[in-house]
Design a protein around this nucleic acid. Structure first.
Lengths: 155, 155
DNA sequence: GCATTTACTGGGCATTCTGTATAGCGACTG
DNA sequence: CAGTCGCTATACAGAATGCCCAGTAAATGC
């Protein structure tokens, strides 16, 4: 669970140059290959590294518009709403939250006009009482993990 | 830019089994190795695939609490606030948005108590007028891209 | 209609990496 | 003090990669 400095450096290296192999990583980090291999195995079985899935850019796929929708749900309809939202491809992420809304989801769309269609599809479901949408204009800090990794590694 | 069915299948395959190589992928997809290689190169230079960075789980790093904070910013302080937020490791993501707030950020913390510390650090900055936080309880749909890829590939 | 370009196939080749195993060494622990 | 753990160092077979080429089929331009 705890991450030491070598783990941190390894994660950082992998984040910066993902196509790097175990052997090359060991050279960069100045440790034996077996060490890197053992660390990687441990990080993966720990669940620290979930995987190495391709990082796909929705914008490049033709979905340049991102929005966050806060949803208010009718009592007891939670699981139906979840299933509904999971069936919409443009819903990239869904959280249930405390606070004003009950759920928060990340949406993408082909255009602002298309966003209307997506929202209609998302909220056009019985269990959803109200929705408020915030359209993303800029993304000054793209999803990142390295600063947190550094902190966790004690750096 | 446009994604055909083979691209979609390749992305799906890579998402499901990321450690797969080009050769193995070509076998699974029933095409020549050179084809997979060419498609991958194209997807990467297109920007569709940003990279293959390790997918790190903040919870496994000791940050099991996630929250979204909506921030209201003092006019003209945008770039200062951006820089401030970028300097906080627990800020995983930051967007500027339309709607009620001016910014939306994703936070993580070691505990609910620790979240208070993080929020204090985030909002303890002159340009931020008001903040409202929603703590994530469940994540019924984790960040995903495959359904969108399938739709973009026309299937 | 004809030539050109593009994308895919199938094959080959040298280099490199992976998976796996070995043994030695220093540090920590019961 | 013996046992365990993590790291180093090395070895080896099998596999994958990067790169090359020639042939073919479909789309594009003249």
């Amino acid at each position: 669970m705890a991450i030491d400095h070598l783990d941190g450096a390894l994660l950082e290296l992998l984040a910066r140059e993902p196509r790097i192999g175990v052997l090359e990583a060991s050279r960069r980090l100045g440790v034996a290959r077996g060490t890197v291999q053992a660390r990687l195995d441990r990080l993966q079985s720990n669940g620290v590294i979930r995987g190495f899935g391709p990082d796909v850019d929705p914008a490049a796929l033709g979905y340049p518009v991102t929005a966050f929708a806060t949803l208010e749900i009718k009592q007891g309809q939670g699981s139906d709403v979840r299933a509904h939202l999971a069936s919409v491809p443009e819903v990239l992420e869904l959280h249930t939250t405390t606070g004003h809304g009950d759920m928060l989801c990340r949406l993408v769309a082909r255009s602002n006009a298309d966003l209307q269609r997506v929202i209609d599809r998302v909220v056009g479901f019985d269990g959803i009482v109200r929705a408020s949408t915030a359209i993303v204009m800029e993304n000054p800090v793209p999803l990142r993990i390295i600063p947190l990794v550094k902190q966790a590694a004690g750096g």
